[in-house]
């Protein structure tokens, strides 16, 4: 994927930021509005893939030093971890809970343990998608 495509690069610079912001929005919004860990994770992966396409694998890997395989594994561990957390309180495995809290800036905010589970989902999805695409593209 080595090409000197000025237009793609210029667009990607802006688009990646927008996509990442939007995916974060999708992720956070998932509890009440369309979105969630899977979509958020997948669109984040799309943004990362866009970066790889436009700037080349070497350059991006220099700047994002992250092992996406480990990221996926961490995601799965987080998801399982939230499952076991419920067990410690005597609830069945994977019981999710939620509550309303009065936070300084946000006012009355609902915090749900499902968001931690969702984080795990998102990380697993990002890690796996990027990992597969990188593996195949490195195979020359």
């Amino acid at each position: 994927m080595k090409s000197n495509n000025v237009i793609l690069r210029s667009v990607a610079r802006v688009a990646v930021v927008i996509i990442l912001t939007f995916s974060f929005y999708l992720f956070m919004n998932g509890h009440h509005n369309p979105g969630g860990g899977f979509i958020g994770g997948l669109s984040t992966a799309a943004a990362i893939v866009l970066m790889y396409i436009s700037f080349g694998i070497e350059k991006v890997s220099e700047n994002i030093r992250m092992d996406f395989r480990k990221l996926a594994a961490i995601g799965v561990l987080i998801a399982i971890g939230t499952g076991t957390a419920g067990v410690l309180f005597g609830k069945p495995f994977l019981t999710q809970t939620f509550g309303h809290f009065d936070l300084p800036i946000f006012g009355d905010t609902e915090l749900a343990s499902a968001i931690i589970f969702d984080t795990g989902v998102a990380l697993a999805v990002i890690g796996t998608a990027v990992n597969i695409i990188l593996s195949i593209s490195e195979d020359r």
Partner: peptide
């Protein structure tokens, strides 16, 4: 589940087991 989004509530709460195993398979 305290969630207005039914789809997401299904994914992370009602059928959380499925999702957990799915992401394991995915990984």
């Amino acid at each position: 589940a305290g969630a207005k989004n039914i789809v997401n509530a299904i994914l992370v709460d009602f059928r959380g087991f499925d999702t957990m195993l799915e992401i394991s398979v995915l990984t």
